[in-house]
Design a protein around this nucleic acid. Structure first.
Length: 568
RNA sequence: CGGGGCGUAGCGCAGCCCGGUUAGCGCGCCUGCCUUGGGAGCAGGAGGCCGGAGGUUCAAAUCCUCUCGCCCCGACCA
């Protein structure tokens, strides 16, 4: 590609709207351009990189027996009513109306479509297992698109669906996908780790996320420093013990705590540790009030709470707290609470004595709470959010908490969709069974952005061999130096003859400008032809990642570049 | 959906509080000269419905109301 003839609009200045490095660099290097909130065009260079990602995914999915589909992006809303996801997705699903007034969905994912294909054709266990996948554009009307390609409303995603007859077969498909993902991320060159995860809106049992550590990430993960324990904070558990304490039971006593409603204030006022308090928060689930109790130094984990309460719950408003308990926020407690309010308590409270909690009366708390004695109606679960340095549940060593980008998610769907949609088969005994499914997704744009988050410096992107739009960037510095220009043209031709992809910066610009652009675009190897090195009869090869520069005989350049490329 | 910020030339911004010549600056763009190892210099030039609508006023980029869009924090989220 000759830069003089091709569309590669680079920017010297950082666009005001871009905050994170990958977003800034994708704009500056001319990979993408915004069209609307969370909607981007891929420009030629960006699309070449995206295609590289897609090709790798395709090869690795084919390698485990995946069969690629091309599925409709618009589909009848009735399909989504069958599984209830028309309402589950709610405002997050784009809907369009056709000329007859029928509502159609812009597919946010494709379980329903896969099921509809399967129920029409799959009849027998002999036709299973199947591994079907597609690499296509998905649409989700995200409440808040952000961070460039990391969270968009229109995005390219690979998703695969396994159709299995048995749980063992599902496990096998799942494990194959797990291995395939490791191969994909390995080839793409992203540093990643795998965590246990919740299945969220998709439903199902087993679930793992492929994560890339990054401050730009939207997920929080808990990792053990010593063993391989890794989990999304949403489901992470702590190894911290919660055995009963041997504190002597004491009598309940009301204490005045005027104006001190928060744990912090009351703890300071009473000169006790927050750990000795019971934090009580009122939730509303299905219009019913539910009190949730944890120790004063813990935070409620609402993902874990969702597992107990179902999806439709929320924290009560202050007025609701007053109307349900007769107490203002800050003085809530489970002791003496009306019987119609269910109480959920965290495991760590079990057996605790001498605790302080709200007295259900403004400006008063109760001390001497014996959980076994006074909170006997509480239901105990793991409800807390793990904190950094708590012990690992596996090995007891301290846990770390880091931010990460979710780049892939695999999970065992089970029969949620096949049952709802009647996608069944006859098993060996002639009995009709719902197909057991798995679902496996990778975001293409998110992968590109993640790669750039992990591979850039102050000058620009640093592509590796696998993803780079072009392998070599040929830069004659002085357009007036005819021998340099001529040699640059020859090297460019020779590179392409040798099967390498190359960009030739034949623009009549100053050398400094062109070198800045080359670093910004970030192809792995640069061939620089300046007056100085030309005078010595050499050309310079620069390795983008290391900045290392080699002087090479012109005749040896192509071979040298080929050799260097194998290590990039 | 709650909170905050911003819409002025292709990009980055000033001007707005306190209304009043022809709306500015840097970069980019076009022409010429010059320069050519890290986003040069000089000279000349093009480019604006000041996001949109309504209002106040003799007069609105500037004040008021409404609206649309974009970004950030939160809520939410495979």
């Amino acid at each position: 590609m000759r830069l003089s003839e091709n569309f590669t609009p680079t920017l010297k200045e950082v666009p005001a709207d871009a905050v994170i490095p990958s977003h800034q660099l994708m704009l500056r290097a001319g990979l993408i351009r915004p069209l609307a909130a969370g909607i981007y065009s891929y420009l030629p260079l960006g699309w070449r990189a995206a295609r590289n990602v897609i090709d790798i995914i395709r090869e690795e999915q084919d390698a485990i027996g995946g069969q690629e589909f091309q599925l409709p992006a618009i589909n009848p809303i009735e399909l989504w009513d069958e599984t209830g996801r028309n309402s589950d997705f709610g405002g997050e699903m784009f809907r369009v109306t056709d000329r007859k007034g029928r509502t159609l969905a812009l597919a946010p994912t494709h379980e329903e479509i896969i099921c509809s294909v399967a129920r029409g054709e799959i009849r027998s266990y002999k036709q299973l297992p199947q591994m079907w996948y597609q690499i296509q554009t998905k649409f989700r009307d995200e409440p808040r698109p952000r961070s460039g390609e990391l969270r968009t409303r229109q995005f390219i995603m690979k998703d695969a669906y396994s159709l299995n007859a048995t749980e063992q077969s599902l496990d096998e498909s799942y494990n194959r996908q797990h291995a395939s993902y490791c191969s994909i991320f390995g080839r793409v060159g992203i540093e990643y780790f795998v965590v246990g995860a919740s299945s969220g809106l998709m439903g199902g049992s087993g679930s793992q996320e492929f994560m890339a550590e990054s401050d730009a990430g939207e997920d929080t993960c808990v990792l053990c420093n010593a063993c391989d324990y890794a989990a999304n904070l949403e489901i992470a558990v702590s190894g911290q013990s919660y055995e009963s304490r041997s504190d002597q039971p004491v009598e309940l006593k009301e204490v005045a705590t005027p104006g001190h409603g928060t744990i912090e204030e009351v703890a300071a006022f009473l000169q006790q540790e927050p750990d000795n308090f019971i934090k009580s928060i009122l939730y509303i689930a299905d219009d019913q009030p539910i009190l949730v109790c944890v120790t004063g130094c813990d935070e409620i984990n609402e993902s874990k709470l969702e597992a107990q309460l179902g999806a439709l719950f929320r924290q009560a408003e202050p007025e609701e707290v007053l109307s349900h308990t007769g107490t203002p926020v800050g003085y809530l407690g489970a002791v003496g609470l009306p019987d119609n309010i269910k109480v959920l308590a965290d495991n760590r409270l079990q057996g605790r004595c001498g605790m302080v909690t709200g007295a259900l009366k403004e400006d008063f708390h109760i001390s001497g709470v014996d959980v076994a004695r006074d909170l006997d109606r509480a239901e105990f679960h793991d409800l807390i959010t793990v904190k950094a340095d708590e012990p690992c549940p596996n090995c007891g060593q301290p846990l770390s908490i880091i931010r990460a980008i979710e780049i892939g998610h695999i999970f065992k769907l089970g029969t949620k969709y096949s049952s709802a949609m009647g996608a069944t088969f006859l098993d060996e005994s002639g009995k009709e069974q719902p197909i057991i499914m798995g679902s496996y997704g990778i975001g293409v744009g998110r992968m590109l952005a993640t790669y750039i988050e992990q591979n850039h410096d102050e000058n620009g992107i640093i592509w590796n061999r696998a993803l780079t739009p072009y392998q070599v960037h040929v830069v004659p510095l002085n357009a007036k130096n005819e021998s340099a220009v001529q040699l640059a043209g020859k090297i460019y031709d020779d590179l392409r003859t040798a099967g390498l992809t190359a960009v030739y910066d034949d623009r009549p610009l100053r050398g400094g400008f062109k070198m800045k652009d080359a670093d910004l675009l970030g192809f792995p190897l640069q061939v620089i032809l300046g007056d100085r090195t030309m005078a010595e009869g050499k050309v310079e090869v620069k390795i983008r990642r290391s900045g290392e520069r080699l002087l090479v005989e012109p005749e040896a350049v192509v071979a040298k570049l080929q050799e260097l490329l194998t290590n990039l």
